[in-house]
Design a protein around this nucleic acid. Structure first.
Lengths: 283, 283
DNA sequence: GTGTTTCTGCAGAATATTCTGCAATATAAC
DNA sequence: GTTATATTGCAGAATATTCTGCAGAAACAC
């Protein structure tokens, strides 16, 4: 999808109905139109090649070839990106194929995530994280790494985070005073752990804001969540991968850092000093 | 990069030197050539348009337009993929841009990983993990999530894993009897934590196999490592992302599962039973 | 309804692109 | 070194693409 301003060299005072129709089609299908001749495009839209040429001229070009050149400039860079992305998914026949295959599937999962997540919801969740008094994070079993990451990233930004850790028996104590003003972020993928579902429902009852990162609208987290974000988590329908989820968490945290740029820099500064004193890092 | 078989309609018995040069250029730069006329391409390569036409004919096409059409068929699907992926990397101007930007950067990081990791080394590391008596895993601070994931995935496959946890003071105790037959996998990215570096060096002294997953050959882990795998970890040169590293760990674990398919299925079966008894999962 | 203006497509002119015969040059064979 | 063969590019023919004048159709004003 291109934007009008990108291909109009002069703002046309007024376009005729057919010209508008053609322009609309060009903007929406630039990746196909960029390969067509004026005549081809005309035939596709049931108009005359004349109309195509006149539109190009109305937009400030010498003629159709000029417009085509411009489309090419806009479309080609994207092509080289994928070009280098490279390779198709091959059948896994030996351990050597596993590496490229997993990486490729994960790339695809990221692509799907980009397509599926509603930017509106994303933005709202960043808001919610920003305004929250405290952030609770829960993810059990193999997804636990996501919670660990999110907790450490949010702490890094100076948020007060409570990483729910089951097994030690203190989890319900940690949740004791959760309530309005707090946010809980929960991760769960098939087969969903019962505790996560229960904790999310409990948090909702206590009027905390509930954010669910899960695999689809049929997830048992759906009924408790104020905000849902779904990410694909499968590789080859057998192994599971939380790569896309991790990237999403990363985006959330980055969005938050972006909102509070000034604060973030200040916090970072403070930490640098502390680290230097403690000698945490290797020289 | 296209492959010869994709654009040759008949296998040409023999190509002339100039034809080979042109064909090579077409295969390597299909995403640019697809937009050029025979004359343009000829000028770029300092040959005559005639040679271009003759090559097209030698490959079994009517003429150059036929070859061009074929290139288009091969190149266009990739374009629409990215088209839908949504825009090229834009400058981040608002929170809305963060999501697509982070996902895109992570995709790029995965691509780089696929290009950089030596399949030989990958395969060797899978071997080492398979044969190890015990697997120690260490990753501190924000990378800790990687260790958490790797540990849980390996346990899932029935390996004996020791997740090194600093802060509780027991870490050196956990390491007490590390020795030959054991493997240690360590993660560290700038700024490298001192403890990780020390632990890796210690493990090496004790004759454990040392696998380092880090950001480059200059990493302080390099001197202790028997096997090194490097992954990019930066987004926009400010935020860090462990997405590529996570995907690599995933690949390692999947490779291991692939090697021991039979065992893996058996273990899985056993776990299913236990889970059902304990009611861990939500119905 | 009538006159005016705008819009559209056809037909052919203008231009751009591709194709082919031929001659010049390079390469290989002996 | 000579001859035979293959390779290449030039020039102009053939074809494809784009552009423009004009006429008919549609929209609008009154």
């Amino acid at each position: 999808m291109l934007r009008m301003e990108q291909i109009a060299r002069v703002m046309p005072s007024g376009l005729t109905p057919i010209q508008r129709k053609v322009l609309d089609h060009i903007l929406k299908h630039s990746e196909q139109v960029v390969f067509l001749t004026a005549t081809d495009l005309a035939r596709q839209l049931n108009v005359s090649d004349t109309s195509i040429v006149r539109l190009a001229q109305a937009l400030g070009y010498e003629g159709y070839p000029g417009l085509k050149r411009r489309m090419r400039e806009l479309v080609q860079p994207r092509l080289s990106t994928v070009e280098r992305l490279g390779e198709t998914v091959r059948k896994v026949e030996s351990v050597d194929d596993v590496l490229s295959n997993v990486l490729l599937c994960d790339m695809n999962n990221l692509r799907k995530t980009a397509e599926d997540i509603d930017p509106e919801v994303f933005s709202l969740v960043v808001d919610v994280l920003e305004e929250a008094k405290r952030v609770f994070v829960i993810a059990l079993r193999s997804t636990h790494c996501l919670a660990v990451f999110m907790a450490s990233a949010l702490r890094f930004l100076g948020r007060e985070v409570i990483l729910l850790t089951p097994g030690t028996g203190e989890m319900w104590e940690q949740l004791r005073d959760i309530g309005s003003g707090d946010v809980i972020v929960g991760f769960s993928f098939p087969r969903y752990t019962k505790i996560t579902v229960q904790v999310m429902a409990f948090a909702r009852e206590r009027n905390a804001r509930v954010v669910a990162i899960t695999d689809g609208d049929l997830s048992p987290l759906a009924s408790s969540a104020h905000y849902m974000m779904t990410v694909p988590y499968e590789i080859d329908s057998f192994v599971e991968s939380f790569t896309a989820a991790l990237s999403l968490v990363n985006a959330l945290v980055t969005g938050l850092a972006f909102r509070r740029q000034a604060d973030t820099i200040k916090i970072l500064q403070g930490m640098e000093d502390a680290w230097a004193r403690e000698g945490i890092y290797w020289e």
